[in-house]
Amino acid sequence: MFKLEPRSGSSRLMAYTSPVLAVLLTLLGGALLFALLGKNPLTGLEVFVVEPLRNWRSVSELLLKTTPLVLCALGLSVCYRANVWNIGAEGQLICGGLSAGSVILLLDQGTLYSPLMVLTLASLTGIAGGAAWAGITAWLRDKYHANEILVSLMLTYIAQLLLMYAVNGPLKDPNGMNFPQSKVFSSEYLLPHLFSGSRLHLGFIVMLLACGAMSVFLFRSFAGYRLTVGGLAPLAARYAGFSSRRALWMSLLISGGFAGLAGAFEVAGPIGQVLPSISPGYGFAAIIVAFIGRLSPFGTLLGGLVLSLFYLGGEMAQSRLGLPSAITGLFQGMLLFMLLACDTLIHYRLRWKK
Rank of each mutant, 00 (worst) to 15 (best):
N147K: 12
V306M: 02
Y348P: 02
A82D: 00
W139N: 09
L42Y: 10
Y165W: 13
E5T: 12
L307Y: 00
P68G: 04
H193A: 05
M1H: 15
A128Y: 06
A82M: 04
L227H: 01
I288G: 12
I87A: 01
Q109N: 15
I327W: 02
G75V: 05
F337V: 14
W85R: 13
G101H: 11
F217T: 14
T344R: 13
L27N: 15
A35Y: 08
L36S: 05
L171E: 03
H145L: 05
A138E: 10
P180W: 14
I87R: 10
G281D: 04
L107P: 02
L98P: 05
L345G: 00
L162M: 14
A341F: 09
Y165I: 11
I292F: 08
T137S: 14
F219S: 11
G75M: 07
L202D: 01
K354G: 07
Q160M: 13
G96N: 08
H193K: 13
T137C: 10
L307T: 00
L27I: 08
G203R: 00
A237S: 07
A31N: 15
L107C: 10
N175R: 15
A285Q: 11
I346K: 14
L153W: 03
S198T: 11
W133A: 12
L301D: 00
G263F: 12
R12I: 09
G256N: 07
C342L: 06
V289D: 01
L155T: 03
T344M: 13
L248S: 07
P234C: 02
I287D: 00
K65I: 09
L336T: 00
K183T: 09
K3M: 11
L323M: 10
L323Q: 05
G197S: 05
L21S: 07
R12T: 13
L309H: 04
L232A: 15
R220G: 10
K183H: 08
V167T: 14
K183N: 05
D108H: 01
F284G: 02
P270T: 03
T300I: 12
G97K: 07
L42H: 06
V216Q: 11
P6Y: 06
L119S: 06
F185K: 00
L302N: 04
L302Q: 09
G29N: 02
L202C: 05
M154W: 06
N147G: 12
S152E: 04
S102I: 15
G30P: 11
L105V: 12
L36C: 10
M14P: 00
A166Q: 13
E46Q: 13
L323C: 14
L350G: 00
G176I: 05
G299I: 02
L33K: 05
V23F: 11
Q273W: 02
G256M: 06
C72H: 02
H145W: 04
S99Q: 10
T43M: 08
Y80C: 03
L252I: 12
A210E: 04
M14Q: 09
F331L: 09
F2H: 11
